[in-house]
Design a protein around this nucleic acid. Sequence first.
RNA 1: GGCCCCUUCGUCUAGCGGCCUAGGAUGCCACCCUUUCAAGGUGGAGACACGGGUUCGAGUCCCGUAGGGGCUACCA
Length: 499
Amino acid sequence: MTLNDLRSAPVRTRYAPSPTGPQHIGGIRSALFGWLYARRHGGQFILRIEDTDQKRTVPGAVELIQESFDWLGIDIDEGPREGGEYGPYVQSDRLELYQSWAKRLVAQGHAYKCFATAEELSEMRALGRGYDRRYRDIPDWQAAELEAQGKSYVIRFKMPQSGVTVGADMIRGQVEFDNTQLQDAVILKSDGYPTYHLAHIVDDYHMRISHVTRAVEWLPSFPLHLSIWEALGWEKPQFAHLPVMLNPNGKGKLSKRRQQFAESGRSVPVLAREFMEAGYLPEAVINFLINIGWNFGDDREVFSLNEAIERFDLKDVNPANSAYPIKKLDWLNSQYMQRADVDKLARRLKPVLESAGYRVDEERLRQVVPLLQVRLKTLRDAAPMAGFFFADWSTFEAPPHQILIQRKMTVDGARMVLSRSLPTLEDLEDFSAAAQHAAMTRLAKDLGLKNGQVFGTLRAAVTGQRVSPPTFETMEILGRDESLRRIKLALESLALATN
RNA sequence: GGCCCCUUCGUCUAGCGGCCUAGGAUGCCACCCUUUCAAGGUGGAGACACGGGUUCGAGUCCCGUAGGGGCUACCA
């Protein structure tokens, strides 16, 4: 390849998951890095489904994978749903391709048929050295005979038995492997399906993948893959073995199993859809993910996908695995909540409130959102904080006394505050929050109470909650009639209180 | 066990031989602001795993050790 070819060769990266179930956030992050690199270079991002293990394939998983990417806004250029000129993009639809290349490797002496039975294999394993290459050098006539007898076989790749394989990794530089450590891996199984080792190479080549991005667990088989590329006589792509995320406590690879961690006592989201269910914004999740193993470069923590694209480079990815910093997502999400456009946030809040059982009026929601933005960590926090706006007002009941009578207040004090508030609010020409605030501040002074004592008592009366959006803004939205009605309700309730 | 990778505040990270008395973020603590909860502001505690080299000079390069992670399937 000439320098010019290198310049013009488009960057094509791919994410190649097995359709074994819902998407793990670790896989998403790997995909994201490949996607970012493709976008940075104006290239393409391909989704390829690696379903060569029939036993593990689960129906519907492909749709789940696509949903995850849709939600996050990671667009796919070529894939099972999008199509593309290098399809099909599902490996089980490409079986003949793998088989013909496997045959070719056998014909050229780079691979061989291995007739070892499961029993033989497990005996060898018990000896501790793995497959001993016993069929590597049997004469052709013997292989033909075994095959004629109907013995089943796999095709194994002949690894060089000496020397060193040196691989170039974009993230950590040169990596060396002693060839004598490697076994003759199976590349075509007895059921005619290829293993990952063969399939991904055949596909990456035919799909013109320019940069192979995948998790570090593939590093040990890197020399195998390099040897296969070599044997096939194909120009190799570049490789980047991405670090993985560890559990929040730093122990072990982040597991798909929902688990709890002692420090927080709560289980952390690890599946793509769990982030959605937990009320995180996709932009925040993306930002969060990009910041693990890569950073923006000038101390910025909050940035958009487009801003990240401009700066992203696989070479800058930190080679070290990292503990899953899930606590940072709460902060990041709240940053996005604060900066969000009101209409947009309202649209996202609506279904969350509805699923909490509220009937949501959009106009009212837009009024409420600005009060919420600075207070929410996740979308789900909206329900306990502001659900009362969307409940049936006619069924509102005064809260229990322990809520109505806040700290540093007495029954009489609360009664006083509420009864004096009534006429004050009633007489207000303008029921805006600002006007209320001014009037109530005066009242507090008259009563010799702190603002907090007065405002808090009103808050409890009007919202039924100890914690709520600001009192006067809340009353402005509820309206004067409803606010006064609630205050009267609270007074009636307090009338029965004895102190 | 063998092989491979990794190692900076609790955590995510900046640092690519002198700009580092190691910067940012989060989390934590304190104070300020304040109408609850938040948000915001200010400040604080908090790290170069260890040991050898190389060099005038090492967080930065090399080698060991330790620790962590991964691979070692007819799974990917």
